[in-house]
Design a protein around this nucleic acid. Structure first.
Length: 509
RNA sequence: GCCCCGUUCGUCUAGUUGGCCUAGGACGCAAGAUUUUCAUUCUUGAAAUCAGGGGUUCGAAUCCCCUACGGGGUACCA
């Protein structure tokens, strides 16, 4: 019988959720849904010194915005609660103790200061210190001290940590679903701290214990965890949990768009694109980092783009619904190399999704902006405007700059267009156009187009000059959708007013 | 330094059991078409001797080795 798929996303609440983390979560989600399994949110806050106010709430809100739902976890609950590691503090100690009792771990009394000294010493000799099977015999721990000494230290509340005791010269085999077999020798691995002197476990212990207790079937996480995976595998062995050990998949990293290296917060600020799903206000530094949501991205576009950054179904389709992603996803098809973040492609995806989004839905959000700006118009009007301008928007935030003229007259007139299209005869021609417009009934786009074209032809006027000058009057720039659509939308009265105003400002007599 | 992972157009990638690859698609770029404008859209094009070098083989982007380069790790951080 195949066991139930249970995967988890386990961020640490040290700040906003990085977009690479979003991708990791997405892959976990797709895998869980495809296998009719469970997707769990576990908060890994074992480092109390790095706790950041609001980070946990941010993470939950970000996934809500993205449309990624958890089945269990912080904020939802479930059979394996609690899901926050700080709330699980009491359960880890006995597991650390179990390892000590089984001789898979030991107490270490070396203080951070002492370790520093040793490290500096090694450095001076151009060597690298590692607390491992070679060096542990020279340190202050329960391996070198007598049991009486250890008992005394413990009884007198001397701070200690618990370290994993790697066996010497043993090969650890990892079966990674993406990279296949990876082998590492324990002689090169250090005796990682499992339990800290503050009474909290480290990631390594907590992660293995919780994954076991929560019956996690697959661990899908970033590549940065690959080097410590042998420790995790050994921990499962030490606990005697090999039978139910999850399968591992280590994802390639998201790289910065220019040059190389992990995508970081600074890159976003530097290159002008968000690295976080939602805008983040740092409570300590007061710094603001931009978010996809505030920049006008459609959540589905972000999902689609992210899914394809490191994974490919092997078909030429590029636009996928979440349902399609769920059915097509496979861990085996995840690429091994890191992927550079491509801003242009993200923009293209967003453009595609804006075109696919219903006008009514875009209008709902756009109307908020309009209300903030003091425009209160029927939603049907806003919907019509959206329909006319959305194809020229890459981001929903561009709706205003692509369509302001449907709501308010231009405040300025583009000098370049004036130079190119505003001739000495223009004002007179426009006055005639006004007279013509005044007679048009019904004032619909098609009729206006017909009448205007006829007029221009009959009077042997230059179509380009007239049309562009007219556009300048109404829009203020050489851009925008079909002029006749604009004219009919804003109405006869407004059109005529704008033409008169433009003539007055551009050609004052 | 040491350990691990990786390396196909500028970018994301297809290519998974070696032959249909004179290496395909998308973004971006260039040119053209459409258009009263800006976009959109459409067409066409340039763009990877598959990191380099050795093998194995009738035949390698695909298998093996070496080198180079890139990334990750090397904390009482996750």
């Amino acid at each position: 019988m195949k066991k139930e798929v249970r995967v988890r996303f386990a961020p640490s609440p040290t700040g906003p959720l990085h977009i690479g983390g979003v991708r990791t979560a997405l892959y976990n989600y797709l895998f869980a849904k495809q296998n009719k399994g469970k997707f769990i949110l576990r908060i890994e806050d074992t480092d109390q010194t790095r706790f950041v106010e609001g980070a946990e709430e941010y993470i939950i809100e970000a996934f809500q915005w993205l449309g990624i739902e958890f089945d269990e976890g912080v904020g939802i609950g479930g059979d394996f609660a609690p899901y926050r590691q700080s709330d699980r503090k009491s359960i880890y100690k006995k597991y650390a103790q179990e390892l000590i009792d089984k001789d898979w771990a030991y107490y270490a009394f070396d203080t951070p200061e002492e370790l520093d000294v040793v490290r500096k010493d090694f450095e001076a000799q151009k060597k690298n210190f590692q607390y491992d099977c070679q060096t542990r015999s020279n340190m202050r721990n329960s391996l070198t001290l007598s049991s009486n000494q250890v008992k005394e230290l413990l009884d007198s509340n001397t701070p200690y940590v618990v370290r994993f005791k790697f066996p010497e010269n043993t090969e650890v085999h990892i079966n990674d679903m993406i990279r296949k077999e990876v082998i590492m020798n324990t002689n090169l691995l250090d005796d990682k701290v499992l339990y800290k002197s503050d009474g909290m476990p480290t990631y390594h212990l907590a992660n293995v214990v919780d994954d076991h207790l929560m019956q996690i079937s697959h661990v899908i996480r970033g590549e940065e965890w690959l080097p410590s995976c042998p420790l995790h595998v050994m921990l499962y062995k030490a606990f005697g949990w090999e039978e139910t050990m999850p399968e591992f998949a280590h994802l390639p990293l998201l790289l910065k768009p220019d040059g190389n290296g992990k995508l970081s917060k600074r890159d976003g600020d530097r290159l002008g694109f968000p690295v976080f799903p939602l805008e983040w206000h740092d409570p300590k530094t007061n710094e603001i980092s931009s978010g996809y949501r505030e920049k006008g991205y459609i959540p589905k576009a972000v999902i689609n783009f992210l899914a394809l950054l490191g994974w490919n179904a092997g078909i030429e389709q590029e636009i996928f619904t979440m349902e399609e992603l769920i059915s097509l996803f496979s861990i085996e098809k995840i690429s091994k190399a890191g992927a550079k973040f491509d801003l242009d492609k993200a923009k293209w995806f967003n453009h595609q999704y804006i075109q696919m989004t219903q006008n009514s839905e875009l209008a709902k959000n756009f109307n908020q902006t309009l209300i903030e700006k003091g425009f209160n118009l029927p939603i049907t009007y806003v919907e019509e405007v959206v329909g006319l301008i959305k194809e020229r928007c890459n981001f929903t935030t561009e709706l205003w700059e692509q369509g302001y003229f449907f709501f308010t007259p231009p405040e300025a007139y583009d000098e370049k267009i004036i130079k190119k299209r505003w001739k000495p005869t223009t004002p007179n021609n426009l006055i005639q156009i006004i007279e013509l417009l005044d007679t048009i009934e019904p004032f619909s786009s098609a009729i206006i187009e017909e009448k205007l074209h006829n007029y221009i032809e009959e009077n042997q006027l230059n179509m380009g000059d007239i049309m562009n000058a007219l556009r300048l009057c109404l829009v203020g720039q050489g851009k925008g959708p079909h002029l006749y659509d604009i004219i009919s939308m804003i109405g006869k009265k407004e059109t005529i007013e704008r033409i008169n105003k433009a003539i007055k400002i551009i050609s004052p007599q």
